[in-house]
Write a protein that binds this DNA or RNA. Structure first.
Length: 216
DNA sequence: GACCAGGCACATC
DNA sequence: GATGTGCATGGT
């Protein structure tokens, strides 16, 4: 094993030991994962939960129901998640793609091979690499590594990646140095988020960041 | 009241 | 290609 491989396994093991299984994604259906992935863009999950709860309460959390909903009504329901006007358009854009290209069926959409699925998702306005990969990993159950702000912050602080590395470069680093295991990728990303939520809020904390005791 | 959160698109240079 | 800005609510 290379030193990068050893480091990534070591960090994973330490995170798992510290935080345990995260059981991601917190959703009842694949469609809920998709909506949650869009709603959580640059947003605290606690706010997303309120928006999802609104949709669930009205029994609207399905592709068909949401598609039939007026945009102002959708915006009103997802309001607690913030950026609600933009997110309304993004959800709509996803649904447009889902219905025009896959007959409204997530199952059909997820059947295409991994790179075609990723390209299709990235082609939707409002779905960038992290949202696309979250959908692919946590809804389509395919092995892609999800990179987020915490991943960059934590791993660059520990000199494992460069802070200026692109999304694709960081993703490649993880996927080149870990087995392509969707269970592992699922848990690893969730653990990184859990660590980030707990301690890695602002840059100046780096020196006293408790992650040091996990990594070093 | 400031700062942040599981991003992304778009404008401008 | 790099850098800056708008989008918005709710918790600390």
């Amino acid at each position: 094993m290379s030193s990068s491989q050893i480091k990534l396994f070591d960090i994973y093991n330490k995170l798992y030991k510290r935080f345990g299984s995260q059981n991601w994604w917190p959703a009842d259906t694949d469609f809920e994962v998709v909506i949650g992935a869009i709603l959580t863009q640059n947003t605290a999950w606690s706010n997303v939960e309120k928006a999802i709860a609104n949709l669930k309460k009205k029994r609207l959390l399905s592709a068909k129901k949401l598609r039939a909903l007026k945009l102002v009504r959708l915006a009103e329901l997802i309001r607690p998640s913030g950026y609600y006007n933009i997110k309304t358009k993004r959800i709509r854009a996803f649904l447009d793609c889902l219905f025009s290209d896959y007959n409204g069926s997530l199952k059909k959409m997820f059947k295409s091979d991994l790179s075609r699925l990723r390209q299709a998702l990235l082609g939707i306005n409002g779905i960038g690499p992290e949202t696309a990969d979250s959908i692919i990993l946590y809804a389509a159950n395919r092995p892609v590594f999800v990179v987020d702000a915490y991943t960059r912050r934590i791993f660059s602080r520990h000199d494992i990646i460069k802070p200026e590395a692109t999304y694709d470069q960081i993703q490649r680093f993880f996927m080149d140095n870990l087995p392509l295991d969707r269970g592992l990728f699922n848990e690893y990303h969730a653990l990184i988020v859990e660590l980030g939520k707990n301690i890695c809020k602002t840059k100046p904390r780096c020196d006293i960041c408790p992650i040091a005791c996990f990594v070093k």
